[in-house]
């Protein structure tokens, strides 16, 4: 691995832009993501910025049990994110449907059916520390050596 590649990996792993998309959650997990921004957890000191613009994002946080209205739209958001990219399922709902996965409910979990999911954070809702450590745990595996992997 060349020196340039190492510098790229280092810089890339220290500046992650996050976009989050709510595909029908109860807002519990959204609030936990919001708590990551607050001074107590302070997600920005790890170089993670919440932008909510998929064209600038590296990581997509997916929240919610995937209501049917998101059928084509989530794929559209995912396709807009430039490579290298990763999606993280936050909370029980994108993993299993959570408490909404009942007979007669209009949800279509899991989200991994619709877009590739790199990491899953279980919990209803997950704690901000768990969300933070999930983002930090994928930054080295997904973004390291991207140009080498492309070749």
């Amino acid at each position: 691995m060349t020196l340039l590649q190492r510098i790229k990996d280092l810089v890339r792993s220290r500046s992650i832009h996050v976009s989050y998309v709510d595909v029908g959650s109860c807002n519990g997990c959204d609030i936990e993501i919001l708590a990551c921004l607050a001074p107590r957890y302070d997600i920005e000191q790890y170089g993670i910025y919440v932008h909510n613009n998929p064209r600038e994002a590296d990581v997509l946080l997916v929240v919610g049990a995937f209501t049917l209205g998101w059928e084509e739209k989530l794929k559209m958001v995912w396709d807009k994110i430039p490579e290298p990219k990763a999606a993280i399922a936050i909370g029980n709902c994108p993993i299993s449907g959570g408490v909404f996965d009942r007979r007669g409910s209009y949800v279509d979990p899991p989200v991994s059916k619709h877009i590739p999911i790199a990491a899953e954070v279980p919990g209803c809702p997950p704690r901000p520390t768990e969300i933070l450590s999930a983002i930090l745990s994928i930054r080295d595996t997904v973004f390291a050596g991207w140009e080498v992997k492309q070749r």
Partner: peptide, 10 residues
């Protein structure tokens, strides 16, 4: 390059 504090533990 370095965060000011380590991630909080549960």
């Amino acid at each position: 390059l370095f965060a000011k504090t380590a991630p909080l533990m549960t």
